[in-house]
Amino acid sequence: MNLETRLRTFSQLSNEELYQILRLRSEVFVVEQNCVFLDLDDKDQKCHHLSIYYENELLAYCRIVPAGLSYKEVAIGRVVSAPAHRGKGLGRKVMDEAIEACFNLFGSVPIRLGAQTYALKFYQSLGFREEGDVYDEDGIEHIEMVYQFAR
């Protein structure tokens, strides 16, 4: 499968790309996870958006949040893969690409994320380490995790 990775600022996203991103986020975070929350949080406009496509179909996505917007550190958020394409390593691919993008955009700075606890082992396998206590966010258990670049 020949995958295409796209890294865009908000203003660089086409209408079609933005629609596909918002649709996938809604499909997974609102419908599949049965979580009523306001996904459109006024942060997207300040983020970079990393998308993985196959033949113009969005398969996986995350956003890269600059330091000071969600946390004091740079963050990766809204990590999602299309339900029809799970089990193909797309979550790992989008996260590997996101870590690389963070490095290219911001240097060797720590990266923070709020992980759903069911995905703890996945993020640990990427080099993230838990920090703090488990907390409830919109009815789903989360824990903050931090990635430190090796120096």
Score class of each variant (00 low, 15 high):
residue 30 V to A: 07
residue 39 D to W: 15
residue 50 L to Y: 09
residue 30 V to C: 11
residue 26 S to Y: 15
residue 55 E to N: 15
residue 69 L to H: 10
residue 56 N to A: 14
residue 54 Y to W: 10
residue 69 L to N: 09
residue 62 C to K: 02
residue 50 L to K: 03
residue 91 G to C: 04
residue 63 R to V: 06
residue 43 K to P: 01
residue 77 G to I: 00
residue 27 E to P: 00
residue 62 C to H: 06
residue 87 G to S: 12
residue 95 M to F: 11
residue 50 L to V: 10
residue 42 D to Q: 13
residue 3 L to E: 07
residue 65 V to Y: 05
residue 145 M to Y: 03
residue 139 G to A: 08
residue 102 C to K: 04
residue 93 K to M: 14
residue 126 L to E: 03
residue 109 V to N: 01
residue 139 G to W: 10
residue 45 Q to D: 11
residue 89 G to S: 11
residue 23 R to F: 13
residue 50 L to M: 04
residue 14 S to T: 15
residue 136 D to M: 15
residue 38 L to Y: 12
residue 136 D to C: 10
residue 51 S to R: 04
residue 140 I to Y: 11
residue 142 H to I: 01
residue 86 R to K: 08
residue 46 K to A: 11
residue 133 D to P: 07
residue 44 D to H: 07
residue 98 A to H: 05
residue 114 G to F: 03
residue 113 L to F: 08
residue 87 G to W: 09
residue 98 A to V: 03
residue 132 G to W: 06
residue 81 S to N: 05
residue 118 Y to V: 04
residue 144 E to V: 05
residue 65 V to M: 02
residue 38 L to W: 13
residue 18 L to R: 04
residue 50 L to P: 01
residue 114 G to H: 07
residue 132 G to E: 11
residue 16 E to L: 10
residue 10 F to R: 00
residue 151 R to S: 13
residue 145 M to L: 05
residue 71 Y to S: 10
residue 5 T to E: 07
residue 62 C to Q: 02
residue 149 F to C: 02
residue 61 Y to G: 02
residue 84 A to H: 12
residue 87 G to D: 12
